[in-house]
Amino acid sequence: MTDAPAAVEPLLELRDITASYGTIEVLHGVDLVVPPGSVVALLGPNGAGKTTTLSVAAGLLAPTSGGVYMAGRDVSGVKPDELARKRVVTIPEGKGIFPNLTVKENLLMASYTGVSVDHIERVAFERFPRLGERSSQVAGTLSGGEQQMLAMARGLAVEPAILLLDELSMGLAPLIVEELYGIVSHIAKSGTSILVVEQFARAVLGVADTAAVMVNGRIRAVGKPSEIENDLSAAYLGA
C-alpha cells in the first residue's frame, strides 16, 4: 500500500464514550482514534477501564452515550457478531480460544467471516508451524504461548480491517510476547488498524505508533510512546 497521507481519517474512533455496568459508570467520556494502518496502545493500571473501552469498540457493551465510528460509520449498538463478520477481529483477554475444541476446530470458527477454512489453516500453519503440528490437539492443553498464537492466528488469517487486542502479554514469557508483537507490527504494516490494551508491557511500546494512558475511566495522556514512558512507571508504582 502507499504511504498513508498525513491527515487520513481514523478507521476506528470512539467519541466521548460513557459506559456503565449496571448502575456503576466506568467510562466517563473516552475519546480515542486509531488511524488506518497504525497501532495504538491503550495502557493503564488495573481497573482503569481499558478492557471496557475495548468491549465497547468490539460491540460487546453498548455505550450509554457517545459513539463508536468505523470508517466514518456510526456502529454503536451493532452486535459483535455483525462486526466480526465485517472483519473487525477482537481477541479478548486471556480467553481468545475455545479450550475444549481442537486447534483445527478453533480455526473453523473463524470461517464465519467468510474466509475459507483452507485459507485460514494455510495462513495459520505457515505463520505458526507449531500449531500445524498440533492441529488435532485440544486447545486447552496447549501451552499459554501456543494458545495465544492460536488466538492470533485467527486475527491473522481473516485479514482484519480492525484488530482489537486485549492483554496479549498476559501470563506469557517475555520472549513469546516479543514474538507476538512482531506479528502485530507485521499485520499493521499490511494496513490493519490495531488497538492494543496492555497493563504492563514495554514490548508494546516498541510497536505502537501512539500510546494512550488511561486512569479511572478517562484518557489521561496521549502521545508517542517515548513521550509517555516516564509517566507510566510513575502511574504504576506510585512513586
Binding site: M1, A4, A7, V8, E9, P10, L11, P36, G37, M70, A71, G72, R73, D74, V75, G77, V78, K79, E82, L83, R85, K86, R87, V88, G114, E159, A161, I162, S190, G191, T192, S193
Partner: peptide
Amino acid sequence: SPDLMGFGTEITRADAQLAARAIGLDG
C-alpha cells in the same frame, strides 16, 4: 441492531484510504 456496517459491503483495507470520504455517508 441495525445493519450499519455497510449494506452487504465489508470494511476492507481500501476503506482505510476512503475513510475520509466515508465520513458523513450516514449517521
